[in-house]
Design a binder for these strands. Structure first.
Length: 271
DNA sequence: CTTTACGCCTGACGGC
DNA sequence: TGCCGTCAGGCGTAAA
């Protein structure tokens, strides 16, 4: 489910709630997520306070004096701040309970998410070591996309969804950014010009920034830490709009499967 | 090395 | 009403 704007929305939302108060206990109701939830969570968390909540790619990283806790939301994960005595729902798999009676609760119906204690050197962890640059950092440029794509034949949409190239872009924002840049999603990545990659990098930055400002995209079930939706769905120009007129030229938006994922685009405005 | 297909899971929805 | 197929915002792995 969540891409960078949704994870960033959750990061900002939970930060004031999870700092300051020590962890009282950890409750794991369902340890079998993407990987088994670390069995030593309580040992590292209980009695300690988190000192920062970071985001790297689509991972949340909660830091305390002992090290780092990694949380990934997969396709269907969400985090809520709830009173610790609130009856858990189906799929409420992990609680981190604070001494003030608040609780960070992970719900994840499909269980593609992860909760892992990764110790003291997060950058060296296998899940984080090979990630590309953050799209909202100065490192992310059209020049970098251009250089990294030479000789590559995969579709540009799949190229920008590869987290080793640039992080945080999933199926929604890939379609949206390519539309804004006027680039057909199925074009071979290696055949796109430097100039067009400059446009694409700028489009990625813009769409992600606007989506964060709107609190993310809620299509079916994304909610923030208070259980509230994000409003960027109203600003999506192509994703989920098959058959609706392109806002630029009026031609119906096309949906085609590219790399096993639904891809939305305007066949006239994107070449 | 690159690229593609698949599987992990549950739930919602449409067609019959 | 129920059953079945398809699809869903991610991503690691196997195979070609």
């Amino acid at each position: 489910m969540p891409e960078l704007p949704e994870v960033e929305t959750i990061r900002r939302g939970i930060t004031p709630w999870v700092l300051e108060h020590p962890v009282a206990k950890v409750v794991v109701r369902q340890p079998q997520l993407r990987w088994m939830v670390s069995t030593d969570l309580a040992e590292h968390l209980v009695g300690r306070r988190f000192i920062a909540v970071h985001r790297r790619a689509k991972y949340l990283l909660l830091q305390n004096e002992a090290g780092w806790l990694l949380i990934h939301l997969g396709m269907s994960g969400s985090l809520r701040i709830v009173p610790s005595d609130l009856q858990p729902d189906r799929h409420d798999h992990v609680d981190i309970v604070f001494e003030n009676g608040r609780c960070l609760r992970l719900n994840d119906p499909r269980r593609f998410g992860a909760v892992l204690w990764i110790g003291e050197r997060p950058a060296e962890h296998v899940l984080l070591a090979h990630l590309g640059p953050e799209p909202l950092s100065a490192e992310f440029t059209g020049a970098m996309l251009y250089a990294g794509s030479r000789g590559r034949k995969l579709a540009v949409k799949n190229f920008i969804m590869d987290q080793r190239i640039v992080v945080g872009i999933g199926n929604i924002y890939a379609s949206e950014a390519l539309y804004r840049a006027g680039i057909h999603p199925a074009l071979a990545a290696g055949r796109i010009s430097r100039r067009r990659y400059d446009l694409l990098a700028e489009a990625v930055r813009q769409v992600l920034t606007e989506a964060i400002a709107a609190g993310g995209t809620t299509l079916r079930d994304f909610t923030n830490e208070q259980g509230r939706p994000g409003y960027f769905a109203q600003q999506l120009l192509v994703y989920g709009r098959e058959g609706h007129p392109c806002v630029h030229c009026g031609r119906p938006i096309t949906c085609e499967t590219i790399g096993q994922r639904s891809s939305y685009f305007c066949g006239r405005c994107q070449r």
